[in-house]
Design a protein around this nucleic acid. Sequence first.
DNA 1: CGGTAAAATGTTACGTGTAACATGTTTGTC
DNA 2: GACAAACATGTTACACGTAACATTTTACCG
Lengths: 348, 348
Amino acid sequence: MLRVTCLSDLFVHLLTFMTNRASLQDIADQLGITKMTVSRYFRSPEKVAPATREKIAQAVKSAGYIHNRAPALMSKSLSHTIGVVIPSLSNQVFSALVDGIETITNSESFDILLAHSGYDPKVEERKIEMLLSYQVDGLILCETEHTDRTRTMLKQAGIPVVECMELPEAPIDMVVGLDHKAAAFNAVSRMIASNKQHIVYLAARLDRRTMLRQQGYEQAMWEAGLTPQTVATPFQSSFSQGMKLLQQALDTFDRVDGIFCTNDDLAVGAMQYCNNEGIRVPDDLAVMGYNGLDIGLTMQPKLTSVVTPRQAIGIKSARLLIDVINGKVPSDKLFDLGYSYTEGESLS
Amino acid sequence: MLRVTCLSDLFVHLLTFMTNRASLQDIADQLGITKMTVSRYFRSPEKVAPATREKIAQAVKSAGYIHNRAPALMSKSLSHTIGVVIPSLSNQVFSALVDGIETITNSESFDILLAHSGYDPKVEERKIEMLLSYQVDGLILCETEHTDRTRTMLKQAGIPVVECMELPEAPIDMVVGLDHKAAAFNAVSRMIASNKQHIVYLAARLDRRTMLRQQGYEQAMWEAGLTPQTVATPFQSSFSQGMKLLQQALDTFDRVDGIFCTNDDLAVGAMQYCNNEGIRVPDDLAVMGYNGLDIGLTMQPKLTSVVTPRQAIGIKSARLLIDVINGKVPSDKLFDLGYSYTEGESLS
DNA sequence: CGGTAAAATGTTACGTGTAACATGTTTGTC
DNA sequence: GACAAACATGTTACACGTAACATTTTACCG
């Protein structure tokens, strides 16, 4: 029952309704109860009498109350929110990762605050600072290169952090990923095993993961008594970069009978180039990609590619992070989730 | 100068430092000043004496203070944050859009809270509710289908909203986009003008934009006295879907001499299929894509595609939203930013 | 120096949901 | 109908950065 003792009270109510967003107090006033009961209605409805529950539900609906998490953020209790920083918003690798993360956060009633860094540690620093200012309970980062300030901030923030996708040399806290160098080594060894000798590494956007794959590639070549040869561009990788890099490789080196591409974008671009130029894959040129994206399987022949378990990495990362947030002690701080291959035909 | 009157004071300081994150008060106590001065150091440093500034800078650094926006969110003042909901995290269209948005937010010192809906209005509703709970000053949405509850919430939230990419029938507030039906009509008319008569529309993920393009396609066909024919799948579009849909079109219809694809993923998949099957583009089959992504230009022949000005849409959306947040009255509530074409060769 | 303007710093109050504890109310049992 | 237990609701205090206003300190000039 709305209790209005005088006209000015009503006026104040109307005014509040017009200008400010409704608060718990507004709902409570309207029903002649305290905001605590309304708060309980949201947090633990079973503790509110059914009749009251009904009244509140109606008042909440008519007032259009929207939860305000600001006060809760001020208390030291958990915000039930984790921050996720991905490098790019147009890469299936990270969208699958976030999908994995969300299967866990949804079932655990955690929220995600998402930010993207554009592969730039300075931007990552800024975004992490923003996420910390929202009092997130934990962070999932997809890169392992961080500014000094980022490392200091994270140390002082005192929240759990998962670095994922890769196994960093200097982990901040926990790690869920795979060994890109080992994967590259294995992939190139496969190419060599199928009698390719003049394998070139195609690389773009020279970040750490690209470098690690290069190391694996070079090790596999040296161990087989072959000479590693690389063409690289600092630009963002793309299909057209893949075409250009293959062209450049063929121009630069006497013989090329295989290419190991740092990702599927380059590999597909390169295969396009082969199609256009009449180079037969895999007879004239073996092609190995990295990531195992859908597009590789539409190629003729199908692209052979290293598959990274990105959804599983997302799931494991979120699981681990939330467990630690909830006070569990993890069995380990590092999880290597390995890799596999697409069933392609571009190798031999 | 650190003023510690007794040992227990020091102990409390240490304890605070160990367990809780440093607050403005902690910094102030350490320096024997009030937190207000420290707050000013962050908000308007020019109002703090240089000597004090120096001291605070040092204390802030050693304490590892990280700004906490929770209290500010409780005041009715602006949070200088806008929420952005995109449908997908692996689509160049939306990453370019966000890039555009960020050029503006960066220069205006606004932060972005990002969420993704997976093209699902129910998920969009949840994400919007979350963003509102963080007291964002405005919202940019990339879809025009919303649940009833979303519309109610947004009305009651009383913040400006920009719907972008499209021109909705029932706009919530402001709109920045383009007319997909008109673009499709124009694109198909071009195909007809280059003497194609049996043009099939290839569609996936049957959302509103897909439908609008279908309407434009059908209108163009009818007006030219031709019969529209569509093959569609409810699944997410992908390169392999493009292959399948073209195959299906060729199986289903007697003659097909052109395809209009709802996006470049399908178009590229379809062109792959042509490459694989020896269908000549554009002589046997004209192909028109939609979005103008990089990959289209690596094809042989280059894909002709409708280019949507997504970066410009992002810039305009953010500009408009922030202007309104800052109290300006916009000259208009709807901005149609048009479309253009890639210089492709897949048409004629 | 005196006095005023400007600069620097301080004081007070505020916003709002919730934990922890306290009080009031109903239910059920003998 | 008395009383304990369970249930429902209320009370109080708290978190912390900042706007608005108040006070103190410094700078400057005749």
